[in-house]
Every structure is written in C-alpha cells, then in structure tokens.
C-alpha cells in the first residue's frame, strides 16, 4: 500500500517532513528510513530536531508537511499517541519516566501488551501468562530483586532500565530511545549498549544519543541531524570525518 504516492519496504519511512513552531523550523524536509530489525543512532547538536522527529513519529506533533509511514501502511500523521503505541512503536524519554508510586512489577504490568480500553482494564485479572512474562522481563532488565519496591525509590540507572523494560513489555516493533546513557556510569552505559543490541535482534531501535563513546559502542549506522534535516548518514567513522559534521557538531 502506498501513502502519499510512495511505496516502501522500510519499517519506518519519513519523507520531506517539516514542522514549524512559530516560524521556527524544527524539522526541515527531513527524510529518514529505518528497516526492520535495524538499529540506528541519531546524533546532532541541540535544536537539530531529534526530539521533534520522535514527537512526529509517536503522534505528539503533527507535521506541517511530509509523509510518515509505519510498516508501509499506517499513516502516522493521522493517528494519536495511543493508536501509534498500539501499532508497536515504543518511546523512551530522555529523563527516565516511570510510574513512581507503583511498584516495579506494576510498572511492567501496566505496560504489557493487552486490551487498553477502560472497561476491559477494569475487569482484568492478571493471568499466569502475564505473570511469567513479567518475571522474564524483570530478569532481563535485572530488576527481579526490586520488584516490590516503588519505582520512585530506584536509582537513576535502574529507572532507565525499568523504562526500557516497560517498552519491551509493549512488544514493540520499533523502539525510540532518547539518550539512554545520560547520567549513567561507564559500566551501566556499556550494559545498556548490550541490552539495546540484544533488543535489536527482534525489533528496530532508534537511539538518540550525545555520548559518542556510547554510539561507537553500539557500532551501527549513524544519522547526523542539523537544523531539522539530515546532514550525513553512514558508519560512525564516515560521519565523524564528514567536514560539515565536524564543523556543526563535533567541533574542530
């Protein structure tokens, strides 16, 4: 199926997307394509449009022009956040955002892929399959020992991992991850890179990151954004030696 006269096999396809806020062009004819099971790192200076791009993909912001298509058949510019989440796009915020008053276990429970409508939720009882799924996810993000603690009591790094666990509970096809390594120790950063690589075996992952060590650790294709459009794309070595990239982002 084609939307906007385009055919594509990519999982996520953005073409010529522009977003303007009060005359400021946050995105300027941005085009980007992510394949299934691909991991992509997005770098770029502040104000390059990284967060706005995520907002467009997750339905928070409507583009002024352009095409945003998921699985070649869903027009993301017409759907709201909840429908896009149900299509299988998960989003991790820059500052870890978890349900602080709920236990770690309940955080995962609420994120599990099930019927999201109010009345089925009111009458829902946790099934054995759900419990097993929660156990497995807690194990995967190494929070089994903290399952009964309130999420608000976790350390910053644990909250980041819990949020990733919640994304996994949604069984997404595409994960958008905003600065997962921010505020983490070196070891935690390396572990997070491992976790993301593992996730990318079954889902596509888009990582927005400033930490170049972390990006190098991921070892994936890099897209550099600048002033709302793609400045360079390719391996980290190719991008980081690109003259324009050095000029606007990495510094001489």
């Amino acid at each position: 199926m084609a939307i906007g006269g385009l055919t594509t096999n990519a999982l996520l396809y953005l073409d010529n997307v522009s977003v303007t806020f009060d005359g400021f062009r946050a995105l300027n004819a941005l085009s980007l394509s992510i394949d299934a099971q691909e991991m992509r790192a997005i770098i770029g200076p502040n104000g390059a449009g990284k967060t706005t791009m995520m907002d467009v993909i997750t339905g928070k912001t409507r583009p002024n022009q352009g095409v945003a298509v998921f699985e070649a058949s869903h027009d993301l510019t017409k759907l709201d956040e909840a429908s896009i989440a149900e299509l299988g796009i998960g989003r991790k915020f820059q500052t870890p955002t978890v349900f602080e008053m709920h236990t770690v276990e309940d955080n995962i429970l609420l994120a599990l892929k099930t019927d999201r409508r109010p009345f089925p939720t009111l009458f829902s009882k946790r099934t054995k399959a759900e419990k097993e799924r929660i156990d497995a996810l807690l194990e995967r993000v190494r929070l089994t020992g903290s399952r009964d603690r309130k999420a608000g009591e976790l350390s910053h790094g644990q909250k980041q991992w819990l949020e990733i666990g919640m994304l996994l509970a949604q069984e997404p096809k595409l994960l958008l991850v905003d600065e997962p390594a921010a505020g983490m120790t070196d070891q935690e950063t390396a572990d997070t890179a491992d976790l993301l690589r593992e996730i990318a075996k079954t889902a596509s992952v888009v990582v927005v990151e400033h930490d170049m060590v972390f990006v190098r650790d991921l070892g994936v294709k890099v897209t550099c954004l600048h002033e709302g459009s793609v400045l360079a794309e390719g391996s980290l070595d190719a991008v980081s030696t690109n003259e324009r990239v050095v000029e606007v982002y990495l510094g001489r």
Binding site: T97, V98, L110
Partner: peptide, 8 residues
C-alpha cells in the same frame, strides 16, 4: 508516559 504506552 501513559499515553505513549498506549492508554487513551
């Protein structure tokens, strides 16, 4: 967060 997890 609730919205992006898919709750309306």
């Amino acid at each position: 967060r609730s919205r992006f997890i898919g709750y309306r």
